[in-house]
Nucleic acid binder design. Structure first.
Length: 485
RNA sequence: GCGGUGUUAGUCCAGCCUGGCAGGACGUCAGCUUCCCAAGCUGAAGGUCGCGGGUUCAAUUCCCGCACACCGCACCA
């Protein structure tokens, strides 16, 4: 299905919708999750916890969204998480100065260069505004972090542009108090904030968005010394190297040196197994190795996990080998010690990062799960049962003859344990269609026979088949069918 | 941020050219009917016509500005 189909489903069925939409000054790039969206997101996060955090024995934290200025001085975000721009004195339009210089002269200046380098080239080559031929003000940096002011003295602080900074900052305490031992993963789910110049396409590019980030701290001398690699050695991962797809097992990727070490291969394997369980079509996925110019300023090796969607290839996860960039920076700035003991040797850990975009992942799951069945005149969201916003619809075939009361009684017994949806009104077929659209894998219907023999019909979403089951068996059937894998 | 196209009920859209009571379909809700896959009948609710200004006796309609959305460019999880 295409982007518009997903968008319409999202708006009509309570998955997500624009923030502040009743007001004209609502800003782009902010979206709300509705009831269906929250329910699905909660379950997605539970799957992430199971498949990554618990499976690998990671520590999970929940850090502040507002962090002090020093954090971002150390991390490099104040200096580097910014685009160099110039503004025309005459018409006030802003331009990316590095792009402008390249377009007009062919000279390439890296975007991280000193502002004076840009000013020098602009004046030497007499670069003028493309729109009005006006001269430019001096170059400045447009930083993509949201600045906030703390307290009556308005001390500067920032909304975090990535969740991982608190993981780095907290590392010394976590390692000491949680009896840390390398390698160790620290995970966090939360919101990050980026002042994007042009947010677009709802959940795909937000100014306020959810990340699920994992930072694995490791001994850089032991990247091939990892017992648990055996768990994923036969897992097939899809790698996109030099414009070519190479599907191979993790073991083969290490042996052929397509991946640098077992450590990286292991986590790409875990991530693959996680996404397989989300219902995303893995034949439309790849880990793409980034070139030098594409990588973030802190990365030495980088793979993006990308998935093909109706909007093109979409980056869901950034996997960056950040080496000791972060810990060295924070150690230098804070004077805190970040070295730890590993086999009685002092070592400054390196960091491998798995930075997941939750919103984008949820969009992709929706797009890959949504289909139209013309022969049955219905739209079906074939979510994995354990990710469905509604687990089961509980329906009375008709309201009268005591069926409503019997239905209420059954619903009451289920509603704490399952996301059950009670519905008495309208034609039964219409109610099934509505449940199909929110991805409810099951519907149980109470009819006249129920009153005679204590059985109900259990309808399956994908097959549209119905079985008669005893009321006493419902719980067992549902708990098995809805369980996480 | 640039260029193009749009914005009217929950959704899709008509009305705008040529200013004069805010409409349709689907959906939702209630009742009747039916009794297992969007059937039918009756009724109802639902709108700052994106926001602000201007022209006019009168603006959803004409003019200006802005915001937002979509497509393309650039940037990113």
């Amino acid at each position: 299905m295409n982007y518009d189909n997903v968008m319409q489903l999202a708006l009509e069925r309570g998955f997500y919708f624009p923030s502040c939409e009743i007001y004209a000054d609502a800003q782009a790039g902010f979206w709300e999750y509705g009831p269906s969206g929250v329910s699905m997101k909660t379950k997605f996060i539970e799957l992430w916890r199971r498949e990554l955090v618990r499976r690998d024995g990671m520590l999970e934290i929940d850090g502040s969204q507002i962090m002090s200025k020093s954090v971002f001085e150390a991390s490099g975000h104040l200096a580097s998480f910014a685009d160099p721009v110039v503004r025309c004195i005459n018409c006030k339009l802003n331009f990316r100065v590095d792009k402008l210089i390249f377009e007009q002269t062919g000279i390439e200046i890296p975007e991280s260069a000193d502002l004076t380098d840009f000013d020098k080239t602009v004046s030497e080559r007499n670069i003028r505004c493309p729109k009005c031929k006006g001269e430019f003000e001096r170059a400045r940096k447009f930083n993509m972090m949201f600045k906030v002011e703390i307290g009556p003295e308005a001390e500067a602080a920032y909304l975090r542009p990535e969740t991982c900074q608190s993981i780095f900052v907290d590392f010394p305490r976590l390692f000491k108090t949680m009896r840390g031992k390398l390698p160790i993963g620290v995970a966090q789910i939360g919101k990050s904030f980026r002042n994007e110049i042009s947010p677009r396409q709802s959940l795909l590019r937000l100014r306020e968005f959810y990340q699920a980030e994992i930072e694995v701290f490791c001994n850089p001398n032991k990247l091939n010394d990892l017992d648990r690699f055996a768990e994923v050695q036969n897992t097939t991962i899809r790698l996109w190297i030099n414009n070519e797809l190479k599907a191979m097992t993790c073991q083969q990727a290490v042996d052929s040196e397509v991946l640098p070490n077992k450590f990286v291969a292991y986590y790409l394997g875990l991530l693959t197994e996680f996404y397989q369980k989300t219902g995303i079509d893995m034949t439309k996925s790849r880990f793409r190795r980034l070139g030098e110019k594409e990588k973030a300023f802190y990365a030495t090796v980088a793979f993006d996990f990308e998935v093909q969607t109706a909007t093109g290839w979409l980056e869901l996860v950034a996997c960056n080998y950040r080496s000791d960039y972060d810990l060295t920076s924070h150690a230098t700035k804070s004077k805190e010690k970040f070295e730890v003991l590993d086999d009685e040797q002092k070592v400054l850990p390196h960091v491998f990062e798995i930075s997941m975009g939750i919103d984008r992942s949820l969009y992709t799951i929706l797009e890959h799960s949504l289909r139209e069945e013309k022969e049955h005149d219905r739209i079906v969201l074939s979510l994995k049962p354990y990710l469905a916003p509604v687990h089961v619809g509980v329906l009375s075939l008709v309201k009268k003859d005591g069926l409503k009361e019997k239905t209420d009684e059954i619903f009451l017994k289920m509603k704490r344990k399952y996301d059950a949806f009670l519905d008495h009104s309208g034609a039964i077929g219409r109610r099934y269609r509505r449940l199909d659209e929110v991805g409810a894998p099951f519907a149980i219907t109470i009819d006249h026979q129920t009153l005679e023999d204590q059985t109900v019909t259990l309808r399956k979403r994908d097959e549209m088949t119905q079985d008669r089951v005893k009321i006493s068996e419902i719980d067992k059937i549902l708990s098995e069918s809805l369980a996480f894998p």
